[in-house]
């Protein structure tokens, strides 16, 4: 029990400075909509199976940093959860918080650890694109495989 308490404390402590860092990264990129804005409008555009550049970039960045654990197309693996399902229950803020701070679930039954991506440029700078791509997958607006870009 004391161990678990200590772990929670450590995560909370870790989370604080990283949130600040992430905010800065988003602003520096210039393209990041605020969380509120993301909630009201769809964070992706899909027309006739083709996607906007942001969503496409999200697909690519997903392949770079997320696929190794979460499997192809955000569909989950034997190692990490199905993100098309996770995003049905997780809003943008919770998504960003998890990606930036990481998550630990280590006990007698589980050894699940998601690293913190708060200082990984390839992720932090494109958080909204990755979210848009996964949200499109989660909403069923986008199928599996490599999406085509609008105008291609």
């Amino acid at each position: 029990m004391p161990k678990r308490l200590a772990l929670t404390a450590a995560i909370t402590l870790m989370a604080l400075p990283l949130c600040v860092a992430a905010g800065a990264a988003g602003a520096a990129d210039g393209s990041a909509p605020t969380a509120a804005k993301a909630a009201e409008a769809k964070p992706y555009k899909v027309e006739g199976g083709k996607v906007d550049p942001g969503t496409y970039n999200g697909y690519r960045r997903y392949g770079e940093s997320c696929m190794r654990c979460h499997g192809p197309d955000g569909a989950g693996s034997s190692y990490a959860p199905d993100l098309t399902d996770s995003l049905k229950h997780m809003d943008y803020d919770a998504f960003a918080e998890t990606v930036i701070n990481g998550r630990k679930n280590v006990n007698t039954a589980n050894n699940n650890v998601m690293p913190s991506f708060g200082t990984t440029e390839d992720v932090a700078n494109y958080l909204d694109d990755i979210y848009g791509y996964l949200k499109a997958r989660s909403d069923g607006a986008l199928g599996r495989g490599r999406p085509q870009r609008i105008g291609d």
């Binding site: 696929m67 190794r68 654990c69 499997g71 192809p72 197309d73 569909a75 989950g76 693996s77 034997s78 190692y79 990490a80 199905d82 599996r144 495989g145 490599r146 999406p147 085509q148």
Partner: peptide, 18 residues
């Protein structure tokens, strides 16, 4: 004990090519 890269690549089935 399934897992490894096989478990990651195939747990949800493979995607198709474009």
């Amino acid at each position: 004990g399934v897992g490894g890269w096989a478990g990651i690549g195939m747990a949800a089935g493979l995607g198709g090519d474009s």
